[in-house]
Amino acid sequence: MEEYQRSVCPQCGTRYDDWDHGGDDEEDRYTAVLQKCVGCEVIADKQQELADSGAPMHGMKVALVPAAAHAALEMLRGMQHQNSTD
Rank of each mutant, 00 (worst) to 15 (best):
D86G: 02
M1A: 01
E27M: 06
L50K: 02
Q11F: 13
Y30Q: 05
T14K: 14
M57T: 15
Q48R: 15
T31C: 03
A69W: 05
Q82W: 08
A69P: 01
V8Q: 10
E2P: 02
M57Q: 15
M57H: 11
D17H: 09
A69S: 12
V62W: 04
S53Q: 06
Y30I: 00
Y4T: 12
E49Q: 07
K36S: 02
V8K: 15
D18I: 00
M57Y: 14
E3G: 05
D45C: 05
P66I: 09
W19M: 07
C37Y: 12
E27V: 05
E49S: 08
Q5N: 12
A32P: 08
V33Q: 10
D28Q: 01
Y16C: 08
G23C: 04
V33R: 07
D52Y: 08
R29D: 00
P56T: 06
A63L: 15
Q35C: 05
A44E: 09
L64G: 07
A44K: 15
L76V: 09
Y16P: 01
E49H: 03
D20K: 09
A51T: 07
G23R: 00
L64R: 15
K36A: 06
Y4K: 10
R6P: 03
H21K: 08
S7E: 02
E2Y: 09
V62Q: 10
V8W: 14
D17C: 12
V8E: 03
A44M: 11
C37G: 02
P10G: 13
D86R: 00
L50H: 04
R77T: 10
E41A: 13
V33K: 09
D20E: 15
E26L: 01
Q80A: 14
T14L: 14
A72M: 12
Q48S: 10
K61N: 11
A68D: 09
V33M: 03
E3F: 06
D28P: 03
L34H: 09
A32Q: 14
V33E: 11
M57G: 11
A44R: 09
L64F: 10
A68H: 14
T31G: 03
T14E: 07
K46C: 06
R15Q: 12
L34N: 08
Q48P: 00
V8L: 14
D17P: 00
G23F: 00
A72Y: 04
A51I: 14
K46A: 04
A68V: 15
M75T: 14
V38F: 04
M79G: 01
T14S: 08
V33H: 07
D25G: 00
P10Y: 15
K46G: 05
D45W: 00
N83I: 06
G39L: 05
K61C: 01
C9A: 11
T14D: 04
A69C: 07
S84V: 06
G54V: 04
M79W: 09
D24F: 02
P10H: 11
H58F: 08
E74N: 09
M60Q: 15
M60R: 15
S7R: 04
D17L: 12
A71P: 04
R29Y: 04
C40H: 07
R6M: 10
Q47H: 12
D20N: 06
H70M: 13
H58G: 12
V38W: 02
Q5T: 13
D17T: 14
C9S: 06
P56H: 12
P66H: 11
H21W: 00
M79F: 04
V65D: 07
G54Y: 13
D20I: 02
G39M: 04
A55Q: 10
H81A: 13
H81M: 08
K36Q: 00
A55G: 01
K46W: 00
